[in-house]
Design a protein around this nucleic acid. Structure first.
Lengths: 257, 257
DNA sequence: CTAATAGTGTCTCTAAGACATTATAGC
DNA sequence: GCTATAATGTCTTAGAGACACTATTAG
């Protein structure tokens, strides 16, 4: 919808690499259209392409994202969305999965392409076009490797972000919008919960992301009416009160909210 | 160990470092992780980046798109979505507008980034990542330069497409989905109509894109209730029947459907 | 006066939202 | 029996969809 500018940034390449860009003769033939002729690839510099991955999870009853601290110019000491170059034989999604694996060690999580940010000048070093993905991680699996001792990688509440490098603030806002919209008409929320969960926990997901309180009875009525939940029969006992039923998401009932 | 290299080294930083890798010796020393070595930008080929623009318009009471005929390998003689390389100092949106201008001569039309397609192998010549935009053109303005004598540029119904090059079939399906969805909750449809139009014409836009008949009374009731239309006072007389009121879109009333 | 399309209102059904009480556990 | 949270139903209102007749023009 709206055009945003680019983002990611992480660093990128240097001038040197630009000069070194190899030219494949096969590309010679490349033309995507008549116009392509005008832009013979051999005489053009190529932008760098990176994939950034916004990893989101519910932690401490808050919507948090993983950021890394930059250690050098530009935006030294500011926080940034993790990302890296796309390998020449790697799909964009594969690059995103690689990032995810490197940062969190998790696999098989929800991953969606968000938007491509490519304004010239978003990175002062060189032209970088970034394809941004976002991932939804359930906090339970994440716990496993929660304790990173790295001081330059950390989780932040989307509601209390530090100063961000490049146009990463804008990217996060864009992602939050996407997430909020999809929450309303898809079953995306379940990706933030472990396999079994209570209705209260599900409601928290919605409340935290939409950033507003929801009515308990209306919420449950709506969710139950869709038949996307399966009662596991188990209950979650915690605290000094009535235990809550544990449910499981039933993807078979691919019902749209 | 592993933990450390993943969380710290690889992850982020090194990703970052990748981007920065080259040149600053200080950084070099700082991050010398395995990954950094692997992704030293200097030894990596860069993908080509193109912007393709799917130009859509209502013509002959049909939803049509502009395609160009390829004249050489690969996909010789097949039809493709127009596109071209992104100039090194040009934003993605600017590149899309340039394409649009080159192909149709129109400016100031609705333009939206659709998705980025980048699977290796989608183009047999080299790695090409394409950022796809779609544009909505109102047929009236388009008439002006409707008569292109180029035999390799033509409009096609999205419902009767020729054989398409690359993954362009998939791209068109993706765009059609996006358009259909947005039709329901935005005022995007007005971009396909000239400044003044009748309610029947507006209904055609919906019917053609959604590919189904709508109820006349319900449709009008809904549109009118949003207050996004302004009666121009003028009427459109054509044929031997009661003339229809001409309306104009009132963007001030940014009402969501 | 005929042909062709514009324009209009009611009823039903479903979904969203407001709202308060009882149930069950630990201690 | 006290505290804390789980679980549950009704009413009102708004919007979606089904549905048929009158109005206005050219010829």
């Amino acid at each position: 919808m709206e055009e945003q500018s680019e983002a990611t940034g992480n660093g990128i390449n240097n001038v040197q690499s630009l000069r070194e860009v190899p030219i494949k003769s096969s590309e010679h033939a490349q033309r995507n259209s008549d116009e392509a002729r005008q832009y013979d690839v051999n005489q053009y510099e190529r932008p760098s392409v990176t994939v950034d991955v916004l990893m989101m999870s519910l932690r401490q009853r808050d919507l948090q994202i993983l950021l890394i601290k930059r250690r050098s110019w530009p935006y030294e000491n500011m926080w940034a969305i993790p990302g890296g170059f796309v390998n020449i034989n790697e799909s964009l999604e594969a690059a995103a999965k690689r990032e995810l694996q490197e940062e969190t060690g998790v696999q098989d999580v929800y991953l969606e392409q968000l938007y491509t940010f490519g304004d010239p000048g978003r990175d002062p070093r060189t032209r970088v076009i970034t394809v941004v993905y976002f991932a939804l991680l359930d906090s339970e699996r994440l716990q496993l490797r929660a304790a990173s001792d790295a001081t330059d990688v950390d989780w932040f509440s989307v509601y209390e972000l530090p100063q961000l490098a490049f146009d990463h603030q804008e990217i996060i806002e864009y992602a939050l919008n996407r997430l909020r919209n999809k929450l309303e008409y898809t079953t995306i929320a379940f990706n933030l919960l472990p396999e079994q969960f209570t209705l209260r926990e599900l409601q928290w997901v919605y409340e935290i992301i939409l950033h507003k309180k929801l009515d308990k009875r209306n919420f449950r009525k709506k969710i139950v009416s869709t038949n996307i939940l399966e009662d596991t029969g188990a209950k979650k006992m915690e605290g000094t009160h009535r235990p809550a039923r544990l449910y499981r998401f039933n993807p078979a009932a691919e019902h749209k909210l």
